[in-house]
Design a protein around this nucleic acid. Structure first.
Length: 251
DNA sequence: TTGTGTTTTATTGCCTCC
DNA sequence: GGAGGCAATAAAACACAA
């Protein structure tokens, strides 16, 4: 090892023995900061590893052993604790960061899953709307047909209504309230007109309501649609709010 | 060689504990 | 009130690229 290398490694203390030489400090301008030797640092590190706090007794022993002022040993421990704390903070940060990254990754996959489910809901709602449209058209056709040639069912319903109001149930029910009936001939067409556009306009409101309840599970899809809307996104829920106008009123 | 960033040693001021 | 710890900071020593 050359002198240059030695001076590079230990610029201030040439050997441990020099540490105890008072002349050394005089020659080396003691007012200047001096770096500790590798041996000194090694011993201090070992001591720090064993216990990072320094009791007065140990401080004195170490100082004597290393040829340093007790104050220097105390300062070294103080600075060493500060460095350890910084490193510990870095370790904690890394740990926290990796934990955060894992959580973020998990969150991202949840967001993607959520988006996928949302698009599925949109797709299903579109299908429902299409079905609803079909159903509407089918009813429209049925209505047109009823206008021109009232079905037997229509006549029966209207007939029952009239029978109830006139207390003449027996003969009417058995005869079936056919298109030949004088009652139907007189009132049937009028009722259809009087009720405006409603196909069930001549029905009792109570029956109507009950019918609506039962129709909940019918194949026109209304009940299903309502059920879906309960959990549907906002833009679909708005449809629910507006839907009845388009559904129940013949346009 | 020099400028610049980093590391190490040391000081200061404040706080807590006994 | 003195001792010791800590945070902030200064300053010297060191490393290194240009």
């Amino acid at each position: 090892m050359s002198m240059e290398e030695t001076s590079k490694r230990r610029p201030f203390f040439s050997s441990p023995d020099d540490l105890f030489d008072d002349c050394y400090y005089d020659e080396q301008l003691p007012e200047k900061k001096r770096r500790l030797t590798a041996e000194q640092v090694h011993l201090l590190e070992k001591s720090f590893e064993a216990e990072n706090k320094l009791e007065p007794e140990r401080k004195g022993q170490l100082a004597k052993k290393l040829g340093l002022q007790p104050r220097q040993v105390a300062v070294w421990f103080q600075n060493r604790r500060a460095r350890w704390k910084t490193k510990q903070l870095e370790r904690d940060y890394d740990l926290l960061k990796s934990s955060y990254d894992a959580l973020l990754s998990s969150y991202d996959s949840l967001v993607k899953e959520n988006q996928k489910l949302k698009s599925e809901v949109v797709s299903l709602n579109e299908k429902i709307e299409a079905k609803e449209e079909e159903s509407k058209e089918a009813k429209s056709d049925k209505k047109t047909e009823t206008h021109h040639q009232p079905t037997e069912v229509t006549n029966n319903i209207c007939g029952i209504q009239l029978q109830l109001s006139n207390n003449k149930t027996e003969d009417r029910l058995s005869s079936g309230c056919s298109g030949e009936s004088a009652v139907v001939d007189e009132d049937g067409p009028q009722r259809v007109v009087d009720t405006g556009d409603s196909f069930f306009g001549c029905m009792d409101p109570v029956v109507d309501a009950a019918q609506s309840e039962e129709d909940g599970g019918s194949d026109d899809g209304r009940s299903y649609f309502s059920d879906v809307l309960v959990v549907a996104p906002d833009h679909v829920s708005n449809q629910q709010h507006e839907e009845p106008l388009g559904w129940w009123v013949w346009s």
